[in-house]
Nucleic acid binder design. Structure first.
Lengths: 339, 339
DNA sequence: AATTCATGCTTCATCGATTGAGCAAGCCTG
DNA sequence: CAGGCTTGCTCAATCGATGAAGCATGAATT
């Protein structure tokens, strides 16, 4: 099709020739600072019209190369398979565009190697700022960026070498656990510990949630055995497996579960449906994360919905203010049952 | 922090000086074609080591500016709020990286203006190829790209001026409708039409699904009234509203519904839960799209899961082969109940 | 000894946009 | 009418990477 005419793109030089002026004037007009450069309104208009007619589009590579700031903002994100990360990404894009920044996002499939690789690539593309969302090793990324003089902000999981914006995992888990314990007491009259399943025992969020989980039990005067806490990973299969193993070693299953993400919940629910256990009645569930369909699964479920708008507001607050301290902002999640 | 030392990035010139050689040699070594350029293995190794030590990263803007192909591949996508688009984006990234391409994705919030704006921006960033996913006006985008000599491929919704990869909407809807009709007949013994809700009446996919819906009814000898087809838009609120209106004008609600996306289903389910209707028993549902939690909502639901891996295989097949004809590839969705 | 050839580099123009410096013409001002 | 100021532009260097062309050096061939 276009093989014959390789569609040479219009440049400012082409426009300059057509307008009988210099590339410099064209550039000034097209990037809006023609007043500063004392270009007449007449010429400005002529150039603008020509550019439109010719379907001119700046070559960002050339433009970025010359300028000192690229106005590109990067984000790395683990997955796109749940509403939490989905809305983070959506809001990130909206807010970036509002500020005239160009967002580039890359998904690292929860692979630590890919995370670093992705960060490096983004630096190659001259991002002005990089948001590391749910990164396994945020400090490694912060170091990489510091070496290139690029700002980093951690989101969802905190780091020590850049400002962080996270959920109040402790507070959220504390309240969530309280509610599920109360639900169990109300319906079944039991005062037994819940089973904590999902997440990585090494990550900050999971540790904080476990702490909240423990404290809520302590408040209620319920002892929690080590075996009742299985941070087996986030994947559905892993959570499903943890449930299977739990069932294998206890005669009476717990009447309440604390599930550490919707993704893990996927596995838990699958197991509940197909294992035949809990046929005498659904256990009370608490899920640290929100999903609209989970909310419809029944009245036995409470969720902690992380407050994505507030979190992103905090992130861009840091960006806009240029704050440099490595503090951690904790945003309370919204706790509720079926909405 | 780095305010004092603006962290001047290392360039090939810096490395050249350190290695006592020329920038040209450094470039040749670092981008791998030093054999072609007859650089000695000794020098190559020295430069490589130095680059590593200095934490050198190519400036892609400069590199892309110079080369004729950018190896950047763009995708525009309507939303990240459902599993379908989420997995499209994930797989797109994986496959792009496999081919040494740099994926950039942008979400247009189903806004036709933003779609065009986003396409224009991507062209500015010199994408080699643009995938328009679920675009309202794919041909407009195709024209823009053609003007810049950039390939486009339509995904999810077809266009006339670029190759397209879509689901077999007709076939999927036909089979889905058949199953829901059969379920209704089995459980309730009724031979009444389903209610079609969600989607945009103007888009190809919805029209094809309506066609499948109609043909399945015709097969079963069931007449379908115009009012039973409400392509009211995708948003949950719109679907919820359509249900409300349906209930307001009929005395007996249909025993089966065809819901045109999980997003619309969100609204439908909400209405079912809170309106008080259907308290005598859930209607049989068919949903054109898949979600793991929807699959757990009960045994009254059938889903058409669009085959994302196959679709992306087709997309990259077209990219790899360089095919130029504007044909439409239709990939059959996977139909099933609770998985 | 003269010529050819391979090897291992360096030089320099180039991609397109940006911007500091500079220049010419017109207009005031004293 | 000389000197200064404003207006409206152009020139040319620059950002960093790339690759065609060219230039030494030494080895091989005639």
């Amino acid at each position: 099709m276009n093989r014959t005419t390789p569609a040479k793109r219009t440049t400012i030089y082409d426009l300059a020739e057509l307008a009988g002026t210099s590339a410099s004037a064209v550039s000034a007009v097209l990037n809006g600072n023609w007043k500063k450069r004392r270009i007449s309104a007449k010429l400005a208009e002529r150039i603008t019209k020509l550019a439109e007619e010719q379907g001119y589009a700046v070559n960002m590579q050339a433009s970025v190369l010359r300028r000192e700031r690229s106005k590109i903002i990067g984000m790395i994100v683990p997955k796109y398979d749940n509403r939490y990360f989905g809305s983070i990404v959506e809001q990130f894009e909206v807010r970036a565009r509002e500020r005239g920044l160009f967002p580039i996002i890359t998904c690292t499939m929860r692979d630590p190697e890919l995370e670093v690789e992705a960060a490096r690539t983004m630096l190659s593309y001259q991002v002005d700022c990089l948001i590391a969302t749910g990164a396994t090793d945020p400090d490694r990324i912060a170091d990489l960026c510091a070496g290139a003089g690029v700002r980093t902000i951690n989101l969802d999981l905190p780091g020590a070498r850049a400002p962080s914006v996270i959920s109040d995992n402790y507070g959220g888990a504390l309240e969530l656990t309280r509610r599920v314990l109360a639900n169990c007491r109300r319906e079944y009259g039991v005062k037994a510990p819940l089973f904590f399943v999902g997440g990585r025992g090494t990550d900050h969020n999971t540790m904080e949630r476990v702490r909240g989980f423990r404290d809520a039990h302590a408040e209620a005067g319920i002892a929690v055995d080590e075996a009742m806490i299985q941070a087996c990973g986030y994947a559905p299969e892993k959570a499903e497996n943890a449930m299977r193993q739990l069932a294998a070693r206890t005669s009476t299953l717990p009447r309440g579960l604390f599930v550490n993400s919707t993704i893990s919940l996927e596995g838990v629910m699958r197991w509940i449906r197909y294992s035949g256990h809990y046929s005498d009645g659904m256990p009370h569930l608490g899920c640290f994360d929100w999903d609209p369909f989970v909310a419809m699964l029944g009245d036995h479920i409470e969720m902690a919905r992380q407050d994505v708008p507030k979190m992103l507001e905090a992130v861009f607050g840091i960006i806009d203010s240029g704050a440099g301290d490595f503090s951690v902002v904790e945003v309370p999640p919204i706790i509720g049952g079926v909405d």
